[in-house]
């Protein structure tokens, strides 16, 4: 896909076209609640915006532990939200390169240069990487999901230059129980570079710039609590009727007019849009409005 995930902007365009307004740089500080019903939001700057419905795309912990006051929520719901597991496990390293790296293991001009590459050649290596994560460290020998998108779309970098995208596991939300430091971040990046360099001689010399995102940066930049990429772990206890919490798996919340539509809800994370679509359907149902204009996901025969 040429436009990358930027294609989402098309969605934004459509929203505007159908009469919606998008405001960026507008951090919500609080959801306004009167008599158990959501009335709008208060922005970080203090501006109040009123609305009939409030639909939160933020993860379930952020929404109900930060944006809504405790007194508005039943204990059992709060307990379950607190127990919701959203521990991060991944990081990202984006690398700008002044030339295409070489992988001697691949034939010259192999189409694999345009593919999703992995250096992990045994399940044991993956498992050991996870052992580090369990012990509260980033993986010394991580497993990478690595791509060079400029081999497909050269416009993403200046002519002749390249961009490498590395998805990295594992990176815990905290290191030995304390917050990440810059030194930790650099150590994490080094584990990635070292692995790539092991398979690509001269790799280090090609690096022009590097952007390193540990769960700390992911939380700070994208607002994903603990840097969890799916807005909540996708384990049995947090799937289907248990997502995000038992009793509230259908996008509603204990607060009237306050809905959830992010990946914390069913069916979960990934760039997929299903939680948002399903939430919209439920909201329309509550409003007794038709959903015929929503195309079905697909026919099942």
């Amino acid at each position: 896909m040429r436009a990358g995930h930027g294609r989402r902007h098309q969605g934004a365009g459509r929203l505007k076209a159908s009469g919606g307004t998008i405001r960026t740089g507008a951090e919500v500080d609080q959801v306004l609640i009167r008599n158990g019903k959501a009335k709008g939001v208060v922005l970080a700057g203090g501006e109040e915006i009123y609305g009939k419905l409030v639909i939160s795309n933020a993860d379930v912990k952020r929404t109900f532990l930060k944006l809504v006051e405790e007194k508005e929520l039943p204990d059992i719901f709060l307990r379950r939200v607190r127990n919701f597991k959203i521990r991060g496990s991944s990081g990202k390293v984006n690398i700008a390169l002044d030339s295409l790296p070489e992988f001697p293991a691949l034939p010259k001009d192999s189409p694999a240069y345009r593919a999703d590459m992995h250096f992990t050649d045994s399940i044991e290596r993956m498992e050991r990487a996870y052992d580090d994560r369990k012990a509260g460290r980033w993986s010394a020998d991580p497993f990478l999901d690595m791509m060079i998108p400029t081999t497909l779309d050269p416009t993403m970098a200046p002519p002749g230059k390249h961009f490498m995208s590395c998805f990295v596991q594992y990176a815990p939300p905290k290191i030995d129980g304390r917050d990440w430091t810059d030194a930790d971040r650099d150590g994490f990046a080094e584990s990635v570079i070292a692995q790539v360099a092991q398979y690509s001689p001269g790799f280090r010399d090609r690096i022009v710039h590097m952007e390193v995102r540990t769960p700390r940066e992911i939380e700070a930049e994208v607002g994903l609590t603990e840097g969890n990429i799916f807005q909540g772990e996708l384990t049995f206890d947090q799937l289907l009727f248990n997502r995000p919490v038992p009793g509230y798996a259908q996008y509603r919340s204990p607060v009237g007019g306050l809905y959830m539509c992010g990946s914390s809800t069913h069916p979960g994370g990934g760039v997929m849009g299903a939680p948002g679509r399903n939430a919209a359907a439920e909201i329309l149902r509550d409003l007794a409005k038709p959903t015929l204009h929503m195309s079905p996901a697909h026919d099942v025969i």
Partner: peptide, 12 residues
């Protein structure tokens, strides 16, 4: 509520 918790934790 207890049943909900039972179903949540079963495979934890």
């Amino acid at each position: 509520e207890d049943m909900r918790d039972f179903l949540r934790v079963l495979l934890m």
